[in-house]
Structure formats: C-alpha cells, structure tokens
Amino acid sequence: MSSLDQDHCLHRGCRDKTTVSSDSSDTCKLAKQPLQGLKLASHAVLVKAQQRGRLKCSKCGGSRMFFCYTCCSLVGVSLQEIPLIKLPVKIDIIKHPNETDGKSTAIHAKILSPTDVTIYTYPCIPEFEKEKVVLVFPGPGAVSVQAMMQCLLDRTDSRSYGEPCMKRLKRDEVQDATYTDKSLESGTQNEAKGSSRVFPLQRVVFIDSTWNQTNKISTDERLQDLLQVELKMRKTCFWRHQKGKPDTYLSTIEAIYYFLTDFHEHCLSLEYNGEYDNLLFFYSYLHSVVNKAKVSAGKC
C-alpha cells in the first residue's frame, strides 16, 4: 500500500487495524471515532430524530427511524434537512430477494442520491450496454478502478473496428474521454482540443446481499459480459461484519463510496475534496451510535 493509500484509509475511512495497539484504552478510543476526516452535513437532525424515537411510516405503517427501508422514504426527517448528492455516474443496485431490508445499507444511497441510484430486486435486472457499464464485484478477471477506463475504451474500439485495440491510448486521449471539473457541475462532457471521443462509463452495478448469497446474482448470464471492477486495499467499518469473511468485504454503501472516490481521482483526474462524503451521512451516524452502545455495555 502506498503512503497515499494509507492516508486515504486512515482519514476517509476506517483506520487500518495495524495502527491499533493492543492497549484496551486505545481500542475503546478507536471505537468512539472510527471514521476520520469526512466532510459531512450536521448530524443534529438525526440526533433530534433519535431522541423523538421511532415513528410510523406514512406509506406502510412500519415503525422506522430516520427512513423507511421498505418504501425508500424519510420518516421523521424532511428532505430539506438531509444532504442530497449528485453523482457523476448512475448507480444500479441489484438486491438479493432474501436480503433483510433493515440490515442493508443500499437504502442510504437511494435516499441521499435519489435521482442517480436505482434499486432492483433480483431476478429483476435491467438491460445494459456492456461497453458502458461495469460491475463492482471481486473475481479473477476483475480490474482496478485505475485500469477500468482503458478497458472500457478498448471494448468500445473492439466493437467499432472488429478487433481489440492493442495500443493503449495516450494519457491526454483518456482525459479527453472524461469530465472536467466544470463539466461535472453543468452535466456536459469535456470537448478537449477537438476530440469527439465519448465518455465510456455511464452506469455502475453493485450487488446487495450477504456474501454467501452473492453467487446466484454474480453468475447470472445477464451480468456475465460486464467488466468487473474490484476495490482493493479497502477495509470495512460495518458493524454487521460477516463471520468468516475478510475485512476487505465491504458493505454496499462503503463499496459505492470508495468506488466514487477512486473514480473521481483516477478517472476524472480531479482532486478529491469530499464531494461524496455525505453518502456516508446515515452510515457514519449509525456507526457512532453502535460503537457508543458497545462502549457503554463494556464490549469494547
């Protein structure tokens, strides 16, 4: 891991376990503040909502806190009180039918980025243009986010000319296929120096299920032709860590967040300044609540 990656893990995600001493006081201190350096909207609205307690969802009548994971709607919190995030690509989440709604973090992304995130329940999977879509899922053929753009461009060239593009594009040609900082705000594509190359990535697919259930979805023939992307050197902070699985197995909202930060830096070639940190708005607050409860119960 490079020093840059180490800094990213320590300040915009979970602290690396190797930095934690065996001293119990250090461990408890870490549990209280597991997420560092995130640029988040104020959690005051969530604190007030938690103090009021659970309320009934106006749509389904279920007892909920903050939001209804069944109806994808806010409960006891108004839309004006939470951050809304505009994403550079569309996100499609394929949810396993047996995944417990109340335990899934996919709803966080849908609530916080309603126009850019869509949740489908398997076996419902939309039709994809394989040259413009990637599946974020580990596997023997998976590539890094850094290599993803070139692979998509090669696929597009292969389809256009009937043979693989053997020669890698120069860096400036790849940049011509990305958004500039201003174009992200305006929603237009970068027309750099007369280049007409189209930005290749339009949608990103994530699987929402326990890791023991992922095989059924990941092996579905409708996803087989998609380029697989793997997020490496990331460690989960999820309080529902699955027994027997490595800490590199991320929750859905973590995977979306880390993909977008890597995409922003390595594909858009832009300095990351917390643009997507608020995707962890609910996650970071719930994480702090869970860890405070553990400390109070003496489980830390």
Rank of each mutant, 00 (worst) to 15 (best):
D225Y: 01
W211H: 06
L152P: 00
I119T: 10
K132A: 13
K193E: 08
V295T: 14
M233F: 09
R240C: 14
R234I: 01
P164Y: 11
H108A: 11
Q202F: 07
G244W: 15
K86P: 09
H96Y: 11
Q33W: 11
L153C: 03
V20C: 10
P126W: 05
T210K: 10
T100D: 15
D176F: 01
R54L: 12
K182H: 05
L87P: 02
R54E: 15
L55S: 08
Q150C: 10
G139S: 06
T188M: 11
E127V: 12
R168Q: 15
K170Y: 09
I119F: 11
S209A: 14
Y257G: 02
V204H: 03
E230K: 04
A255V: 00
S25D: 05
D176M: 06
R168E: 14
R15H: 07
L40H: 09
D225N: 08
S2H: 13
V45C: 06
L46I: 04
T178L: 05
T261Q: 02
T19G: 03
Q213S: 11
K132Q: 14
Y285K: 13
T188V: 15
V198E: 14
P126I: 11
N291T: 10
A177Q: 01
G187S: 10
S22W: 14
P34M: 11
Y161Q: 14
S251P: 08
K235N: 07
Q242G: 04
D157Q: 09
S209N: 12
C9P: 02
K193L: 09
E221P: 07
E254D: 08
K59F: 02
L227H: 04
W239E: 06
A255K: 02
E265W: 09
K90I: 00
E254C: 01
V47Y: 15
R203P: 06
S104H: 09
L260S: 03
G37F: 15
T19V: 13
T188P: 00
I217F: 07
D181Q: 10
A142C: 11
L286D: 00
C124F: 08
R222Y: 14
V290C: 09
T219D: 01
